[in-house]
Design a protein around this nucleic acid. Structure first.
Lengths: 191, 191
DNA sequence: CGTTAACATGAAGGTCGGTTCCGTTTGTCG
DNA sequence: CGACAAACGGAACCGACCTTCATGTTAACG
């Protein structure tokens, strides 16, 4: 989201922008999307007005985070395409790694689960993710180790459930995202 | 929830109570827990004050619905215990039937997914459900058709994910709860 | 039919959280 | 060192919802 070469920001403004971004990442990661803007501002050591100077709405902040996360996820899956090894193992390892990282960030779990704030935005990352995932799936199916009817949409569905479970667990529910993933991945494996 | 023999309700009051209950069931089922109390009142053809005369808070209404749903679910699983047939098939059929019914009711999906409004209440239904489910699981494991490490908690986790997926699908997300369940149940089956 | 207590109503109150706005501060540039 | 635009801060604003309450209505009973 580069501001199209509009005059460079003033030094303090650039500094504050970074502080807001960092504070938002920390606050969202710890408490989820529902954290209040004032909490983010407090963490950043600025006033709410400053947050709004840099991001027009709270949603814009969420979207920025979501884009970043989706980009990284897409990269992780694309990287898996380069790896060699048994295709199912490559797929499963990529999912486990990405999920483990996601599980540590409540907001990212909520976004993955399909939180409205980030559903409409974030087109590019999703696109790349879908493409890479499709290849990963096709290979594993060709090797006969992934169920033949599995689709990218199935993976989205499973990962949406994962996001929900992980977020709920973070909120204190007696759930276990590792068990969830163990079972779901076994369900995706060919019999 | 019998009001301990406190003077019987006046005729119009009883009638209105039923209307509110029916309206709440319809509204929650259609739009989820987030429906506004005013919508429920409108559907029932009464004022909001009347809703509050019969239920102290909106949460009490949600809890009443949740209790009813959990009770019915517990009964469905208990009924499965009486059936004979291959234990895995009995289990899977019970889950499919219960899930199909749940999928038609948005609020019930949300509650199953772990919505805060109903987490604390509803102890009895959960208890009965756990007990019956434990037996169902044990039998299927004894028959070697369910994965040996599956637990009641695993089923809760899977069904929480189900509730989330079904609710999201109802809200327009490109998810598919039937696929979710197909995959998750395959993951619970013994290999 | 009259009296009364229960009940119904919906506008007003309260709260919560995102967003705005303007008086003040601060970096930048001549 | 001014002068000025950019940026900051945070109290006030606003909309969304749940909940309450003062006023009007009605079932129940003698």
């Amino acid at each position: 989201m580069s501001t199209i070469a509009s005059r460079p920001l003033r030094a303090d403004a650039r500094r504050n922008r970074e502080k807001v971004l960092a504070a938002a990442a920390a606050a969202f990661g710890e408490s989820g999307i529902e954290v209040q803007v004032e909490d983010i501002a407090r963490r950043a050591g600025v006033g709410v007005g400053t947050v709004y100077r840099h991001f027009p709405t709270k949603d814009a902040l969420v979207t920025a985070m979501a884009e970043e996360h989706f980009r990284r996820l897409a990269e992780a899956i694309e990287a898996a395409l380069e790896q060699d090894g048994e295709p199912w193992e490559v797929f499963a390892a990529a999912i486990w790694r990405s999920a483990s990282e996601a599980a540590a960030d409540v907001a990212w779990c909520e976004i993955m689960a399909g939180h409205p704030s980030a559903v409409h935005a974030v087109t590019e990352g999703r696109e790349r993710l879908s493409t890479a995932m499709a290849t990963l799936i096709r290979r594993a199916q060709a090797g006969g180790t992934m169920r033949a009817d599995a689709s990218v949409k199935d993976i989205s569905t499973i990962m949406s459930g994962f996001g929900h479970v992980a977020a709920a667990q973070h909120a204190g529910a007696p759930l276990d995202w590792e068990r969830y993933l163990t079972i779901a991945l076994d369900g995706l494996r060919a019999r």
